[in-house]
Computed example of a mutant assay.
Amino acid sequence: MLTSSRGSSYYNKYTYQMSPAMLRARQPYFWKNLALFGVLAGISGGVYLYTYSFLMKDDFEDIPIPPISDEQLAELKKEYEATHNK
């Protein structure tokens, strides 16, 4: 990218702040951009909240859990402790 020796007319080369010309050029688009951001954030947030609420309704009561004996439970505890206490 080629830059001119005088720098950009839209930014101050010492402070990198926008010039009054740049602020005036961006002014007509501010409210439109803000409204578009609100719409896009609303859609994204709505999808997220709908998905979260749908997933929180799920319960696992219809899945049968087989009974386990005390001996099997003790064996599983030993295996778990052997693998996680290294």
Rank of each mutant, 00 (worst) to 15 (best):
T3M: 13
D62P: 00
Y16E: 10
A74V: 01
P66R: 14
N12L: 00
P20A: 03
Y52L: 14
M22L: 15
K32V: 05
P64W: 02
Q72N: 06
K32H: 11
K13P: 15
L76I: 04
R24V: 04
D62C: 08
E79S: 04
P28L: 03
Y29S: 07
T51Y: 15
S69L: 00
Y10Q: 03
A21Q: 14
P64Q: 09
Y80A: 04
F54T: 11
L36M: 15
L36Y: 15
V47E: 09
Y10N: 07
E81M: 05
D58V: 15
Y52P: 06
S8W: 02
L55H: 10
G38I: 06
Y80H: 08
V47F: 13
R26A: 05
K86E: 07
Q17W: 00
T3L: 12
M18V: 02
K32P: 03
Q72S: 05
L76A: 04
Y50P: 08
P28K: 02
Y10A: 02
D70Y: 09
F37C: 04
T3Q: 15
D59Y: 03
R26D: 04
K86Q: 07
L34Q: 12
D58N: 12
L55E: 10
S5I: 11
A82G: 00
F30S: 13
G46S: 13
M22T: 06
M22F: 09
T15K: 00
V39R: 05
A35Y: 13
L55T: 09
F60E: 01
M18N: 00
L73P: 03
K78P: 02
G42K: 03
T83D: 07
K77M: 05
F54S: 13
E71K: 07
N85K: 03
E75C: 03
P66D: 06
W31C: 07
D59N: 15
G45V: 09
S8C: 02
K78G: 00
H84P: 02
Y29M: 07
K77W: 00
Y52Q: 13
S5N: 11
K86G: 08
S5H: 12
D62M: 09
S44L: 14
P64K: 09
F54M: 13
A82P: 01
E79N: 06
Y11T: 02
Q72W: 01
Q17V: 01
E71Y: 01
Q17S: 04
K57W: 11
